[in-house]
Design a protein around this nucleic acid. Sequence first.
DNA 1: GCGCAGGTTGCAAGCGCTTGCATAGAATGC
DNA 2: GCATTCTATGCAAGCGCTTGCAACCTGCGC
Lengths: 344, 344
Amino acid sequence: MTPRPPSLEEVAALAGVSTGTVSRALSRPELLAEGTRTRVLAAVDRLGYVRHGAARALASRRTQTIGAVIPRLGASMFATTVRSLQRVLEVDGYTLLLAHPADPDASSMPALTTLLERGVDAVVLLGNEHDPAVYERLRVRNVPYVIIWARAGDPAAHPSIGFDNRRAGRLVGEHLVALGHRRFAMISAPTQGNARARDRFLGLVESLASSGAQLPQNARIETQYGYREGSDAVDTLIARDADFTALVCGNDYLAVGALAALARHGRRVPQDVSVVGFNDSEFAPYTIPALTTVRFPIEAIGERAASYLIERLRGDERIENVELPVELVVRDSTTAPRRGTARR
Amino acid sequence: MTPRPPSLEEVAALAGVSTGTVSRALSRPELLAEGTRTRVLAAVDRLGYVRHGAARALASRRTQTIGAVIPRLGASMFATTVRSLQRVLEVDGYTLLLAHPADPDASSMPALTTLLERGVDAVVLLGNEHDPAVYERLRVRNVPYVIIWARAGDPAAHPSIGFDNRRAGRLVGEHLVALGHRRFAMISAPTQGNARARDRFLGLVESLASSGAQLPQNARIETQYGYREGSDAVDTLIARDADFTALVCGNDYLAVGALAALARHGRRVPQDVSVVGFNDSEFAPYTIPALTTVRFPIEAIGERAASYLIERLRGDERIENVELPVELVVRDSTTAPRRGTARR
DNA sequence: GCGCAGGTTGCAAGCGCTTGCATAGAATGC
DNA sequence: GCATTCTATGCAAGCGCTTGCAACCTGCGC
């Protein structure tokens, strides 16, 4: 009832060679004479042999595994990030291992420990707000890593592949101000403890200043990212009697929820209220109306991060700090505010 | 420049005990005398020691890893499935390892091999359309597994935790027929090679039969799951001049795309066309109008599958076949067709 | 015909940990 | 007070592979 899986040794016996040769047939086939190689591979096939990863890892001191510490993002950002990393990693035979911090504010240390126990050869860290001990432990163990979605606090110290959230916020503000909006509202993730949310907010505020546009305190809501949260936030804004013609949502999920709530309250988008999101999620062209949003290079970041780590593992020691461009995608949810038609 | 990470031996030396004792301090602390235990743990902490997973796996013959073969689903189903599996697994110290078949029709064998190389203790298989060799290899290696999202073809042979897609299709049909709809259209994933899509379709057709409702061939479109695909499909239906008052979409992504396209074509939902999706995705309450859809127990399936495998690994040999209920969630995208107001 | 360079393959020493068994005290019972 | 039973720890044999090095061939040049 415990038919042990075939071992290297059994394959070797069947092929009439030593275990070393079988090992080489699988990892560096070009070293073997043609005849031997085919004979060995036939034996492998015949027995359904599968290499024992733990033993390989132990002997070779590499696991061919890359870890990623990724907080619970929205499903779409999460899936996109994972997919893009995987796509590149699998080409070189690496496997991706995921670990989430227990909750958004928790330390990344336990997640990192899980990954290190698993022997990851390198690590992807999302965001730059990690416990300093995290970087320290990576350095001590000499494990390459890269920060994604953000710039490193100290670019010389940490490699990073990200984009500029502040600039994203500014793009949104400039677009709306240019359309003529002066009364703003914003639904955001908590701006403390989340540098990405904070930067989007700061960028927006920055771009409002010169035109005299307003984003009063009672028109600001901080909540978690989510459809329901966006919807609830609009309910709150309206209950507060907040006065705005432009609603900036911290990401596209919030925006979708907001669109639904605005429709429910009979506010037309974009005639009565312009709505903007962030992320240019896959669904953004299919909201009603189609959502104006800022495109983040999430896919490119994942691919770039994966390639960078692979390079590092090949011996390249360079520390890279890449900032990929963000881009405003104007669709149908923003337009000029109607003259003198503010609520009331 | 290669400061080897601390080993068990170094910890043992620092704590003045043998390596065996350190090992036990970490895995079965209750076996040690209080004093020894704290001394050892202090040393562990001091050195920042992290166990070497590969060596553990090799010595203990268990990896504490569970693998999942999951085709590329939509982001939300994927994320939900992964999250629910992880939530349960991590409680018992298991890590989840993912592998995707290269493309939807590809064999799951390479994905399985990746997982087996990694030494997974058990495997989750999504769907039941796997190469027989897959089951065979799992059996030979004595690796527990469970099929999710579907019933096993042969329930006695394979454990499964799923739901009834046919019933889901029937629920939708019955709802629409009861509202008075007689002319249907459907946008589906390819029905061959995807039993889930096929069953939803068959269930729908079944429920139409008795009322004399029609789902003509030119009102059926098969495409991939996606927002854009849903939107394009509606364009096609309208270009074909298909005549329908009820549009059934194979999942909620298709439905969102369809809603957007219908709005673009000036067809009002639900007055002119009722629209239904499948999955009750998180965003379903926030589409415009809010989407009527069938709730799948995806979260529950993940949790259940994880618990089942953990039980198996504890020695319970039972083969479980669970079918969790599906449920129609009626929102605002369906209503009775207007009398005599068919197109034309 | 011999020496030597390449090209192949075998040998065997670990990789860092777990765990069954043995051992040594300590505690208990009579 | 001694035998007996526990409890806490040490010992050391692997777990299944990779890989540096050595050994062996083969063929070629001279």
